[in-house]
Every structure is written in structure tokens, then in C-alpha cells.
């Protein structure tokens, strides 16, 4: 097809317009969306005691809120605790989820038909209510106030939904690849670890990320299992700043900004996989 010069020009202007319109819309959205975040960042470097400042540009800039965070609270310890619980929990959950999803995708067994759906429905019992039962259970198996106890609970509560997502991904991987391995004499475990698992990497990253973010921000489960300042995770420790009697918004804002950094960094470095994982798993028809 050939265009006359005027049509081509028109097309160029149209593309130019579409790019800049998109750009404009994105910039406006960013501004609207980031408004509270900028406000919060401002508070973290302003003097005084309130997140609610009446000016967006602080009159007195100070890093004291950040310094206090390290000097007056156990922020570093909380971050360390969070890292332990979040990483171990996510890894354990991943292991349990992957094997389960693989079984649901490749093997035949009793309960395969409705098992996963029943588990997903069970997962919907609100955690705000089961915490008392979880506490008693943790005491019973002597894991109360231990990271291990929390890690086990974290891993368990997220399995059903993630196993469903991951099962879809396994289904999208052609069985022929594993089949040829079987023909070469591999057993099911080798087929799983050597072939299916590596192929599933994008989805594994997705599940890992979902879990990490939700464990990292969890407050409820941590509050019932862990007890005392030295054991707190970041999300739990930060509660200190939101008390009605000791509200210290700038310090809370500073803590939030620091606390979200690890998540942001991990998120962006793994973002590529996130897109791939979500797509393939779900696109399976």
C-alpha cells in the first residue's frame, strides 16, 4: 500500500500526538498517584511531630527522624528479623507450592478434581479470626514466639492460591519435554527437578514476589506469634510510631520509606519475570 505525502504526514502527526498524549496522561497520573507519597517523604525530613504538615515543602529540613530510627528504635534488628522470616517463609512456601502444583498438573490421584478448589475456599477464612487458634496451636507444638513457627504459618496460608496459579503454568508447559526425559530413563523426580522446575522459573519468581510482599507487610500473624521488641518484624515494630500516646509521624514516615526500599529493589529487579510468569500461567486456555 502506498500513501500520498499528505496522508503520511497526517499519520506522523497522529503518532506524534498519540505519544505525547500518552505521555501527558501518564505524567498526570503519576502526579496524582504519587501525591501522598511525596507528602509522606516530605514529612520524613521535617521537624516536629506531625505527618500532617500544612506546607508541602518543609520549613526546616532535618535527617533527625532517620537518625532517631537507628538510635532510638531497634530498626536494624526488625529489618533482620523481617529478612529471616520473609525469605525463609517465601522459600518454604515455594517448595511446598511447586511440588503440590506439579502433582496437580501432572499426576493422577484421588481428590485431584476438586481438591485445589476446596483448599482455596478454606484459605478464605479470615486470618483476623483464626489468630487465637493459631496461637494456641503454636503453643501446643512449642513454636510460640519463634521465627520457625511464623515461617511455617506463613508458608501454609499462601499455598492454595499460589498452587492454583502455578498449576496453570505447569499446564502450559508441553508434557512432551518431560516425556522424552522419561524415555531416556529419568524418574518423575528427575523430570520435575531437572525439566519442569527450571521451565517454571518465571512463575516461581511471581509466587516468590507475592509471598515476599505479603509476608513483609503482614501485621496480624506476626503480632500473635512473635512477642517483644527483639523479635518484632518491621511491620510489627513500626506500630510503635502509630500509638495514640506516642504518635511520631515523621519517624514513622522515615521508617516506611526505608522499609519499602528492599521490596522496591527486589521488585524491580525481578519485574521482568513477573510479567512473564503471570502471562503464561494465566493465558493457558
Amino acid at each position: 500500500m502506498s500513501h500520498s505525502p499528505s496522508v503520511r504526514l497526517k499519520k506522523k502527526t497522529r503518532i506524534f500526538l498519540s505519544i505525547n498524549l500518552t505521555r501527558l496522561l501518564l505524567i498526570i497520573t503519576c502526579m496524582v498517584v504519587l501525591f501522598p507519597i511525596i507528602w509522606m517523604a516530605t514529612a520524613s525530613i521535617s521537624k516536629g511531630s506531625s505527618l500532617f504538615s500544612s506546607t508541602i515543602i518543609p520549613k526546616n529540613i532535618t535527617l533527625k527522624n532517620y537518625i532517631n530510627l537507628f538510635e532510638k528504635t531497634k530498626f536494624i534488628k526488625w529489618i533482620r528479623n523481617s529478612a529471616i522470616v520473609t525469605l525463609c517463609g517465601s522459600l518454604l512456601a515455594l517448595l511446598e507450592t511447586t511440588t503440590m502444583a506439579y502433582a496437580f498438573s501432572r499426576f493422577r490421584f484421588k481428590g485431584k478434581k476438586n481438591g485445589l478448589m476446596i483448599l482455596i475456599l478454606l484459605q478464605m477464612l479470615p486470618a483476623t479470626v483464626t489468630i487465637v487458634a493459631l496461637y494456641k496451636l503454636a503453643v501446643f507444638i512449642q513454636l510460640q514466639n519463634t521465627f520457625l513457627g511464623l515461617i511455617l504459618i506463613y508458608a501454609g496460608t499462601t499455598i492454595p492460591f499460589n498452587a492454583w496459579l502455578m498449576r496453570g503454568y505447569f499446564d502450559s508447559i508441553p508434557f512432551e519435554i518431560e516425556e522424552s526425559a522419561y524415555l531416556d530413563g529419568a524418574n518423575h523426580w528427575q523430570a520435575f527437578t531437572k525439566i519442569a522446575f527450571p521451565l517454571c522459573l518465571p512463575m516461581i519468581v511471581v509466587v516468590f514476589l507475592f509471598n515476599m510482599i505479603s509476608f513483609y507487610n503482614d501485621y496480624y500473624l506476626a503480632s500473635i506469634i512473635l512477642s517483644g521488641n527483639d523479635r518484632y518484624t518491621v511491620a510489627l515494630g513500626m506500630r510503635f510510631f502509630t500509638q495514640p500516646y506516642a504518635e511520631n509521624w515523621p519517624m514513622f514516615a522515615a521508617a516506611s520509606i526505608l522499609a519499602c526500599l528492599p521490596i522496591v529493589v527486589i521488585f524491580y529487579s525481578l519485574q521482568r519475570y513477573l510479567v512473564q510468569g503471570l502471562t503464561k500461567g494465566a493465558l493457558k486456555g
Binding site: L92, E96, A103, A155, I159, P160
Partner: peptide, 18 residues
């Protein structure tokens, strides 16, 4: 065997407390 680790975790963190 593939289901066991996941089911054990679900048993302790979802089914029994539930």
C-alpha cells in the same frame, strides 16, 4: 509425596486453626 509437604503446612496453618 509431592502433595505431602504442602498439605502438612495447610493442615497446620489453615485446616486445624479453621
Amino acid at each position: 509425596f509431592y502433595l505431602l509437604p504442602g498439605l502438612t503446612a495447610i493442615l497446620f496453618s489453615i485446616i486445624i486453626p479453621g
